[in-house]
Amino acid sequence: MNVLTQLWGSDKVKNMLEVHNISKRFFLPKPLFSPFQKNKEILALDQVSFKLNPGRILALLGPNGAGKTTLLKILSTLILPDQGTAKILGYDLITQSQSLKSRIGLVFSEEKGFYWRLSGRQNLEFFGILYNLSPARIKEKTRYLSNLLEIDDLDKPFQNYSSGMKQRLSLLRCLLSEPEIIFMDEPTSRLDPAGALNFRKFIKEKLVRELGKTVFFTTHQISEAESLADEIAIMDKGRIKAFGKPDEIKIKYGLNKDSTLEELYLKTINEENEA
C-alpha cells in the first residue's frame, strides 16, 4: 500500500492541498534619482484560497502576470507568502516546509535547473542524494523511470539533449523522490505538438491514473487545460476568478455545458474589466 493509498483511506488528509488567503506583494526598486519616492508595489496574489483532493489534476489558467508562477513557487516552498498559509498533505507550508519538501515535486518550465556539463545520469545522482536517497535506490529508480519516460541515453551531457528530452529528465528528477503532489510550470511550453501530446498523455494515464499522483500545473493553453485537467482555476490580477470542474463553472457563469473553455476563460477574465 503506497503512502497515498494510506492517506486516502484515512481521515488524516482529506485534501491534498488547502490554500487559505495567501497574499503576496513584490516591491519594485526606487528609480535611481528619486530617493524620496516610495517603492512601487505589485500585488501578485490577493487572498487566494482553494482546495484540491488527492489524485486530481488542477490546471491554473491565466494571462501573463496573473500570479500563476508566484502561487506555484509559494506552494512549492521556494518563496514565502506575506499573508495566509496552506496545508499540503496535512503539513503546514510555512512551519513544516522542511518535512514537506520530500513529498512534493516541481517540474520547471525552463531548460535551466540542471548542470549542463554533467550527463543526465550524473545530474540525477546528484539531485537524488539531495533528497537523501541511497545510490542503490537512485540507480534502481533511474532505471525504472527512464524506461517509463522512454529516455534512452542518460549518459550524454545534459546540454546535448533535445528540449523534449530535457523536459522528461526534469520530470524524472521530480519523480525520483516519489512526491505525492507534483507542481508543473507550463510543462509543455517548449515541446512540439507531438511531444506535448505524449507528455500530456503520460501525465494523465501514468502519473495520475496509474501512480495516483496529484498534479497542479499552470498553462497558457486553454486546450491543454481542457484535455488534461479534472478541475480548473482561472486566475487574473492575483485573484482566483473561477475554480471547479469545467462544467460546473460554465453553469455558474451563465454558459451552457456545450460552451468551450475558451468562452468561459474570456468571460471570467473580461468580467471585471466590463464592470
Binding site: 512549492s76 516552498t77 521556494l78 522542511q98 518535512s99 519538501k101 520530500s102 515535486g105 516541481l106 520547471f108 525552463e110 535551466k112 535547473g113 540542471f114 548542470y115 549542463w116 539531485f127 539531495l130 533528497y131 537523501n132 528528477r173 523522490s177
Partner: peptide
C-alpha cells in the same frame, strides 16, 4: 546562474 538553485532549494537539503 546555472538555474539550479531552485532545484536545490526545493530539496530537503538545507
Amino acid at each position: 546562474a546555472y538555474g539550479t538553485l531552485e532545484a536545490i532549494v526545493l530539496s530537503p537539503t538545507k
